[in-house]
């Protein structure tokens, strides 16, 4: 306990000494912009992969933060610097797990890219055909779009077989990277169903 306390105190004291050119609040703003751009409701694997790289850069830049307030009384700046590092790591965890989850679930919808489509099995391909009819892949973005003239985006289906699991993310301190694994959870008593507010639930 005492050791853990001391560790946190040391960490905070180190933050108070930070003397680089980066402003924590500016960096936070950029973090928000990046997440909004790549990891919003509709996302695709190219964007997510790019985001992983961008976040690595942001985490590096965290080391170069400088602070103006070195006091110990109600120092919101130092507290924020400490929180910001955790926010960046969380952002990495979110992005990495989204990248590995090739499905749409809840409010999150992943767009099927040409490169994703090649990896789908026949059943999955058939399901997409059934739902969207004929579709093509946009030349520029590689995104699946319907052929009916509307260019509606084609999204992955929910994939319970592979992804109805809890995502566990740990942080590999040495490589400063998130590591994703999955854990089964108890759902034997309730049959999984689609989240669909358009119909009344029956069970």
């Amino acid at each position: 306990m005492e050791e853990a306390r001391q560790q946190t105190v040391d960490e905070f004291e180190k933050i108070l000494q930070m003397n680089g050119p980066e402003n924590a609040h500016q960096l936070h703003h950029e973090l928000g912009d990046i997440m909004y751009k790549y990891v919003s409701v509709e996302r695709d694997n190219d964007g997510l992969a790019e985001c992983v790289e961008e976040l690595k850069k942001i985490l590096k830049r965290w080391d170069n933060i400088g602070i103006t307030d070195r006091g110990h009384w109600a120092n919101q700046e130092a507290m924020f610097v400490r929180q910001l590092r955790n926010m960046i790591i969380y952002a990495m965890a979110i992005t990495q797990s989204a990248l590995q989850r090739d499905e749409s679930r809840g409010a999150h919808a992943k767009i099927v890219l040409e490169s994703d489509y090649a990896k789908l099995d026949d059943d999955q391909k058939a399901a997409l055909q059934k739902k969207y009819g004929q579709f093509h892949f946009d030349k520029e973005t590689g995104r699946g779009m319907t052929d009916d003239g509307n260019n509606d985006l084609v999204f992955f289906e929910r994939n319970d077989k592979q992804f109805m699991r809890t995502t566990i993310v740990t942080f590999d301190k040495e490589h400063e990277a998130p590591v994703v694994s999955y854990r089964e959870f108890e759902h034997s008593l309730i049959k999984p169903r689609l989240r669909n507010y358009a119909v009344a639930k029956k069970e």
Binding site: H25, T68, D69, N75, Q76, E77
Partner: peptide
């Protein structure tokens, strides 16, 4: 032009 602690 003085750099100061941000306002709390």
């Amino acid at each position: 032009g003085k750099r100061v602690a941000p306002v709390t």
